[in-house]
């Protein structure tokens, strides 16, 4: 198994506050990994650091895309990291609300296409073909994520569950090798979160995309993930398979705040 994401000794300070404290973490190819932890544990900050939105204070982030050399991505801009093959979704949905569903996904194709202003104005044969490819590719992703019937709706008019799906679809359009999902099931009902379970498994199995997700829905985490990382106060306090984690006293203490015997 190849490690595709390797985070060593990562720390992040916001002024005097240490949001991430010497964090080590890795994701291997083809797995679904989950990060759990109480609110304010630094999970989203961790995502922001590895996607380039925040610049970490210490530590290194290394990625090795399948078939490519290992390289360090500290301090790169978010768009460069996305181009290297890590795409994310957001905890508080951040769709382009005044664009249609299809256009949202087409934005994901931006970094894999190249036509500029001049070719857009001249609209030559290669531009038309590229545009057609973008449309077809995006529509296919919408079919995969099960929202192709909403293709021409404005993103803002979508029901909540579909918006979450669209975020995933948009990230998938960038052809990532690792998909970072920030609370994909937040606000979903049990039915929707079961469907999400299926979708995530399918993305991993059919598209060969590894997944690292932050999630609070324990049922989903336990059934989906191969490995779980537990964070508290910016530190990693445990890692292991779901069955290990569920028995781990440190984890239980972090969640319940006291001893199990008490």
């Amino acid at each position: 198994m190849n490690t595709i994401l390797e985070v060593n000794d990562l720390s992040m300070d916001f002024g005097g506050l240490r949001a991430l404290d010497h964090l080590d973490l890795n994701v291997v190819e083809g797995e679904i990994a989950a990060i759990i932890g109480p609110n304010g544990a630094g999970k989203t900050t961790f995502f922001n650091c590895i996607t380039g939105i925040c610049n970490p204070t210490e530590g290194e982030i290394l990625i090795s895309p399948p078939g490519k050399k290992r390289n360090k991505i500290n301090g790169l801009k978010p768009n460069r990291i996305t181009k290297k093959g890590m795409a994310r979704t957001f905890q508080n949905i951040r769709l382009f609300s005044n664009m249609t569903v299809l256009e949202n996904v087409m934005i994901g194709r931006h970094c894999r296409t190249s036509s500029g202003i001049v070719s857009a104005i001249l609209r030559g044969r290669s531009t038309i073909k590229e545009e057609k490819d973008v449309v077809d590719f995006s529509y296919n992703i919408l079919k995969k994520t099960g929202i192709s019937h909403l293709v021409n709706e404005f993103a803002k008019n979508l029901p909540y569950g579909a918006q979450r799906r669209l975020e995933i679809a948009r990230a998938m359009a960038t052809e990532p090798f690792l998909l970072l999902l920030d609370e994909p099931a937040a606000g979903m009902n049990p039915q929707e979160s079961r469907e999400l379970d299926e979708l995530i498994t399918r993305i991993r199995d059919e598209d060969n995309i590894s997944i690292l997700m932050i999630e609070h829905d324990m049922k989903l985490v336990m059934s989906l993930s191969d490995r779980i990382f537990v964070m508290d106060y910016g530190r990693k306090i445990a890692q292991g398979t779901p069955s290990d984690i569920i028995k781990n006293p440190v984890v239980i203490k972090a969640y319940l705040g006291e001893d199990i015997d008490a």
């Binding site: 996305t82 181009k83 795409a87 951040r94 382009f96 664009m99 994901g108 931006h110």
Partner: peptide, 11 residues
């Protein structure tokens, strides 16, 4: 529409 999301999508 959204600068942060836009960058995160590779623009």
């Amino acid at each position: 529409e959204d600068e942060t999301a836009c960058q995160a999508m590779g623009i």
